[in-house]
Design a protein around this nucleic acid. Structure first.
Lengths: 218, 218
DNA sequence: ACCTGAACACCGTTCAAGT
DNA sequence: ACCTGAACACCGTTCAAGT
């Protein structure tokens, strides 16, 4: 076979196949050999398009960041930064929920992934425009990412196992109330996310109110 | 050699060696063969003490949870639940900072790890005693864990890479301000964590104030 | 009960060889 | 330039064999 007249692979085709494989069977199902087989080529072929496996997974992860809606930051100003942050958080969380197996990768931060950086850039820019000092705007981008990715990781990994016998009331006197059992986990995740998001935004608003107002433009 | 008169291995010895290996060289350095070599035995020996590699790593992760201080919840009541949560968050974060390579494991929730469950139990119990309704107490435990583990993951993984040329100002107009570059990352992590924690607790306090007060005991 | 070596079915990556 | 098979240095886990 050797080199075909038209390339069999492309970065896009590889990323697409890897993405499908991760979503269907999880991160640990992705091996270079398995992925290559899925694409109808032999393992080493991938190395003509990516330096290594990590680079492939980075590209897959970045495709998720690219789906996060950022339009709410476009016209956002001092009046509605809270609404923008809120809507962005929901969009971010929804994007992660669509690809739960990729959350561990995304939780590590943007690195040099372009879409991840675009997200960070949009949040920072909007917060500065809304009147937050640059340092605070940076913190807001980071702490929102902490909470959103942390919640996604915690949720999708299903923090508690299903087997009730794992939780002996003698060891954990308060868990017996079944408030933490797996069958209620989804409601708990929703409630905890909503409660935490509201608390965060309430807290930030209180802090925003203590800033000295930015001078008017003449 | 075969069976020695006194066992060469124990669960504790294995966990200790695995822990040291993870801390020194990271999660990916831990293979059953490498770990066994470190312990002076052959690979399959480990399977006399643990069902598989994941069980070993679970035990290593749980050892970290066991180091989280929970004493602030002992006498905590309606007056000081906020302080208790605050101090616990710092202790939790410090425990994670001591073992950054284990954060991805811990961020997935307690599972059936005993020390992880003890943490969840302590937070829940204290919040209920402080007057939070059980459902809210559950949310608080979850959302605090989201924020703390999310921040640990984001920090220790170093969200942005050092190479400044990775961030073309044409692509990310607001990142050029150097507020997000790697050499300042540690200060940013500290600031973002402190700001987020304060916002969360402020927000929760506002919510607590709207609860109808619990009736006095006669 | 607890350790061993051999074996199975995998890995990621490199590289010379082919077109 | 782009794909191949062979090869290297690994994996996690099972299992019969030893004491």
């Amino acid at each position: 076979m050797a080199r075909p007249r038209k390339p069999l692979l492309s970065r896009d085709r590889i990323v697409g196949a890897a993405s499908a494989l991760v979503d269907a069977e999880g991160l640990e199902a992705v091996s270079t050999r398995r992925l290559a087989a899925e694409l109808g080529v032999s393992g080493p072929s991938l190395y003509n398009h990516f330096r290594n496996k990590d680079e492939i997974l980075d590209a897959v992860a970045d495709a998720v960041s690219a789906k996060v809606d950022l339009s709410m930051f476009d016209e956002c100003d001092a009046r509605d930064w809270r609404t923008a942050l809120h809507d962005w958080a929901l969009s971010y969380r929804a994007a992660l929920a669509d690809h739960p197996h990729l959350v561990p990768l995304l939780a590590r931060g943007p690195g040099r992934r372009p879409a991840g950086l675009k997200v960070a850039d949009a949040v920072f820019g909007a917060m500065v425009r809304a009147g937050w000092p640059p340092a605070q705007a940076t913190y807001i981008g980071a702490l929102m990412r902490y909470f959103i990715t942390g919640s996604a990781l915690g949720s999708f990994a299903r923090g508690f196992v299903k087997d009730e016998t794992a939780y002996d009331p003698a060891d954990y006197p308060h868990l017996g109330q079944a408030h933490l059992l797996a069958d209620r986990q989804e409601q708990i995740d929703e409630g905890a996310f909503a409660t935490g998001l509201r608390a965060l935004l309430d807290g930030l608003e209180a802090q925003y109110a203590t800033l000295r107002p930015t001078p008017h433009h003449p």
